[in-house]
Amino acid sequence: MKLFSGSFHTIERSLNYSALKHEITAQNIANADTPNYKGKKVSFEKVFNDTISAAKIRITDPRHIKGSRQINPAITLSDRRVQYSHNGNNVDIDKEMSNLASNQIYYSILTERLSGKFNSLQNVIKGGK
């Protein structure tokens, strides 16, 4: 019998993704004035699609994906042709701050969901009391 459902693992992986995204965004913000710094971003969708196509999985419905493949987000450099300042830097501080705020909301939702899962588990252990 599995003690924890797959949702714990999914939430854990999502929290790891959010933490990595926060770290990369914070690096971009910290280097917004660094000459010739090229911003980075975390790309999950590209890695996911590459993994699915490499495995030759035919998906009839996105909710039907089975298996326990390890899919990790990739850190990629943003478009090098775009520059937002005269010193060769391509970090858009407004976009990065927006990304940081949306990632914080995503992280908060995940932690609330995880807390709810543990509260449910605690309720079961206590026998509903």
Results as ranks from 00 to 15, higher is better:
S7K: 13
H9E: 13
T10D: 06
I11G: 03
I11D: 07
R13K: 15
S18N: 10
A19W: 12
H22P: 07
H22Y: 15
N31C: 04
D33H: 09
N36I: 07
K38E: 08
K38W: 06
G39C: 08
K40V: 01
K40I: 00
K41A: 00
K41F: 01
V42R: 05
E45K: 14
E45P: 01
K46F: 09
K46V: 12
V47F: 06
N49W: 07
T51I: 03
I52M: 12
I52F: 08
S53W: 00
S53V: 09
A54G: 10
A55S: 14
K56I: 04
K56G: 11
I57L: 13
I57A: 10
R58M: 06
R58F: 04
T60V: 13
D61W: 09
P62C: 05
R63T: 14
K66I: 10
Q70D: 14
P73Y: 09
A74F: 03
S78M: 15
R81D: 11
Q83Y: 07
Y84L: 02
Y84V: 04
H86E: 13
N87Y: 04
N89D: 09
V91C: 07
I93P: 01
D94I: 08
D94P: 00
N99E: 12
L100K: 05
S102T: 15
S102N: 14
Q104P: 00
Q104Y: 09
Y107D: 00
S108C: 04
T111Y: 07
L114E: 04
G116T: 12
G116F: 08
K117G: 06
F118Y: 11
F118A: 03
N119A: 15
S120I: 11
K126W: 02
